[in-house]
């Protein structure tokens, strides 16, 4: 893979920890990736693997305490977002980088009409748009996300909409500001497949038309397959594999990724075996993780070295994987020796 061009946002070695009664939660522990103009990058992983925390950290929206971004950089327009003041951040949030949150209820104001909230957002970022124009634009956006009778319903309050409709309003608001980067955290999880298809298509069209870069968080490998140019697979706070989407599905390198892809039931395969492939065991508790491969207890290819050292990152032509299977014997011996000394 050639080096990425026109990089819009770059995350470098991001680390976000939470201090809890039970210990330090290393929710994000050295995550790096970048998105180019118009590119859609997917982040997949199990519940608790750090997908949301990664993206909240990018916008510096981590509740502190208990959370703290303890290391790394987020480079956007030549500067490190993490160094900016709250005032400067507000210029960026919802304007240049917009976000669709996982929980839509928390981000709509229950006391304001949908129309008021949408018009405000549009005019906040674009001061010369008249109220009327902003309302017309809002109606169009609601229609785009499939809200029936949008013109009639725009003056409703959030509680008058169903959960799925509120989710779509959130999406419409996030899309209203034509940001350079759109971060979408499980944007369609609560929605039905037919509406999901409609919204994903909308995000795709906007990304194409305005060259918006999209970071899409999801646990649905089908959605990733259809939407993303590149995928990051997270496990226990780290990216364990990163590759172009086609390569990842054709040739997953990490045993976790391989297991994930194999354990999804598929509609398109007719000669099915009775049993689904399944990864045994449970996802790890990220409190006080020992310095070893966090996947080793569930891995059917685990070796001695996996139990005593975190794997090195290997890069095969842009297809990156952190797994001891791909290290040389010397590297493994070295790691075993170091672990023995400690």
């Amino acid at each position: 893979m050639k080096k990425k061009e026109n990089i819009v946002l770059e995350v470098k070695n991001l680390q976000t920890h939470f201090l809890t009664d039970a210990g330090v939660v290393k929710a994000v522990d050295g995550v790096s990736f970048s998105v180019s103009e118009g590119e859609t990058i997917g982040i997949v992983g199990e519940s608790g693997s750090g997908k949301s925390v990664t993206n909240l950290s990018i916008m510096k929206l981590i509740p502190s305490p208990p959370g703290k971004i303890v290391g790394g950089e987020v480079i956007f327009e030549g500067q490190n977002i993490l160094d900016l003041s709250e005032k400067e951040l507000r210029e960026i949030r919802g304007n240049k980088i917009s976000m669709i949150f996982q929980d839509p209820m928390t981000s709509l104001n229950p006391f304001l009409k949908i129309s008021t909230q949408m018009i405000e957002t549009i005019r906040l970022h674009n001061k010369d748009v008249s109220k009327r124009e902003a309302k017309e634009r809002s109606i169009k956006l609601l229609e785009d996300v499939g809200i029936p009778a949008a013109r009639k319903r725009i003056d409703n309050y959030p509680h008058q909409f169903s959960g799925g409709m509120r989710q779509r309003v959130m999406i419409a608001i996030a899309l209203s500001c034509k940001a350079e980067v759109l971060i979408a955290d499980e944007p369609t999880t609560a929605l039905d497949v037919t509406i999901q298809a409609q919204i994903l298509e909308l995000i795709q069209n906007i990304s194409k038309k305005h060259k918006t870069s999209v970071i899409l968080i999801t646990h649905d490998l089908g959605v990733v397959a259809g939407m993303c140019d590149e995928v990051c697979v997270m496990y226990a706070g780290r990216i364990v594999e990163k590759s172009l989407t086609d390569d990842l599905y054709k040739k997953p390198l990490h045993p976790y990724t391989e297991g994930l892809i194999k354990s999804v039931p598929r509609m398109d395969i007719t000669d099915k075996k009775d049993k689904l492939f399944s990864i045994e065991g449970q996802p790890p508790n990220v409190i006080n993780l020992p310095p070893c491969c966090p996947f080793h207890p569930r891995c059917h290819k685990a070796m001695d070295v996996c139990r005593c050292a975190y794997p090195l990152k290997n890069d095969f032509d842009g297809h990156e994987v952190s797994c001891w299977l791909y290290s040389t014997d010397e590297e493994k011996e070295e790691a075993l020796k170091n672990a023995g000394e400690n």
Binding site: A197, Q198, A225, D268
Partner: peptide, 27 residues
């Protein structure tokens, strides 16, 4: 038919050339 056409399939080769039936209108 619409449901089946809209359900994502975890294979980028199939997924990127599938035709979807997009539903419009009110429930």
């Amino acid at each position: 038919q619409a449901l089946l056409s809209a359900a994502p399939i975890p294979d980028p080769v199939i997924e990127k050339k599938r035709q979807r039936i997009i539903l419009t209108g009110d429930v």
